[in-house]
Design a protein around this nucleic acid. Structure first.
Lengths: 197, 197
DNA sequence: GTCTATACGCAGATAGAC
DNA sequence: GTCTATCTGCGTATAGAC
C-alpha cells in the first residue's frame, strides 16, 4: 500500500475542476471549492499551498497522464496506421473521461505561474512530437502521404483536442461515433496518400 | 464621416489584448492597461464601464468580425470546393492578423459575464453552422464525401482555430505555407471522397 | 485534519477638479 | 478626456484552538 488512498487530495482536485469549469477560475473562491468538498476554506491549505497549486494539479491530470497512459500505444507493435488509430481512440476516450479537467486546463492555463506553465507546456510539446514521429514513420512506409508531417501533426492534435470543447454527453452523438468518425477522418482521409492520377 | 476616428477606444482594446495575452486577464490590472496606452487607470472608465467590457470588445473583434468579413465568401459564386478553399485561406489570414485577440478570446472567455458569453458563443455557433452547410453542399454535388457533415465541420473549425495556438511568426514557416498546406489537408484530403475500390 | 476568526493587500471602481 | 485622490469590498492566506 504505497500509493493508495488518494482520497481527499484528489477529491479536492475533482471538485475544483467542476467548479472552475462552471464558473471560471477567477470567479471561484477558495470558499467555493471548500464548500463543494464539504469543508471550510481554511482547511484547503492543509492540502495545497495555494489556489494556483490546485489549478496546477488539474492541468497535470490532463497533460502528464496522457503522456504516461496514451503515448505507450505508439510503442506497441503494429503498423503506423494501426498505432495512429489506437492513439486517436485512446486520446478521445481520455478526453471524454476527463472532460471537465480538459476544459479547465484549456481555458485557465493563463492563470498558472510561469514555472508551472512551462511544465505543462513541455508535456504538451512532447505529446505533439510523438504524434509527428508516427506520421513520419507512416510516410516512410508509404502508408501515409502528406506534404508536411509537422503540419499534419498540428492538425491532428488540434482536431482531437477540439473535441472537449463541443462534445456534450446528452446529445444524439455517442463518443463511440466520434471515435469511429475521427479515426476515419484522420487515418483514412487526412493521412492516406492521394491515389495518383 | 459617420464611422470614422476609431482612435482611442480601439487603441485601448488593442493594448489590452496584448497585455491580456502576455500576462493573463486576471493578473492584468486596469492600471496596467492604462499604462500601455499612456494614460491613468481612472481615465479608462470614460471609455468603458468595466474591465470586463474591454475583454468583451476583444472577444467581439474575433467572433463578430469573421462572421461579417469571412462568411460572405461562402455566398460568392463558385463550387463548394472553391468556396471552402477561399474560407480556409481567409480564416487563417484573419487569425494571423488578429492573433493576440484570438489567443485572448480563446483563453479568457471564461471571464465574460454570462450575457456576453452567450453572445460570443452564438457568433461561434453561427460560423460553425455555415461551415457545415458548405460541407453538406459539397456532398450534394459529389465533390465531398465524408460520412458525417457535422463531424467534419467540427474537425475543420478545430483545425483552423488551433492555428493561433501554435503559430509563431519568427519560425521557418510562413503563413502562406500553412494556408497552402491546410487547403490541401482540408479540401483535398479530409473532404474529398475516397476513390472507390 | 478541520475548525473559527482575522489580517491585509490589492484591484476595480468612484468623485470631482481641471 | 484626463487627472489625483480615495473608497471599498472581496478573496487569499495565516494563526492558533480543538
Amino acid at each position: 500500500m504505497t500509493a493508495v488512498s488518494r482520497t481527499r487530495r484528489d477529491e479536492i482536485v475533482a471538485a475544483a475542476a467542476r467548479t472552475f469549469a462552471r464558473d471560471g477560475y477567477t470567479a471561484v473562491g477558495m470558499r467555493d471549492v471548500a464548500e463543494a468538498v464539504g469543508i471550510r476554506g481554511a482547511s484547503l491549505y492543509h492540502h495545497f499551498a495555494s489556489k494556483e497549486e490546485i489549478l496546477y494539479a488539474v492541468c497535470l491530470s490532463v497533460t502528464q497522464e496522457p503522456n504516461e497512459q496514451t503515448l505507450p500505444l505508439l510503442d506497441a507493435p503494429g503498423t503506423p496506421t494501426q498505432r495512429m488509430a489506437a492513439l486517436v481512440r485512446a486520446h478521445l476516450e481520455h478526453l471524454h473521461r476527463r472532460q471537465v479537467e480538459h476544459l479547465v486546463a484549456l481555458h485557465e492555463m493563463a492563470s498558472l505561474t510561469p514555472e508551472h506553465r512551462a511544465v505543462v507546456d513541455e508535456h504538451r510539446r512532447f505529446y505533439q512530437r510523438r504524434v509527428r514521429d508516427v506520421v513520419a514513420a507512416g510516410m516512410a512506409t508509404g502508408e501515409f502521404g502528406v506534404p508536411d508531417a509537422r503540419l499534419a501533426a498540428f492538425a491532428i492534435c488540434d482536431v482531437l483536442n477540439g473535441f472537449s470543447n463541443w462534445f456534450h454527453d446528452d446529445r444524439d452523438l455517442a463518443v463511440e461515433d466520434v471515435v469511429v468518425g475521427y479515426v476515419d477522418l484522420v487515418v483514412d482521409r487526412l493521412l492516406r496518400p492521394r491515389t495518383v492520377t
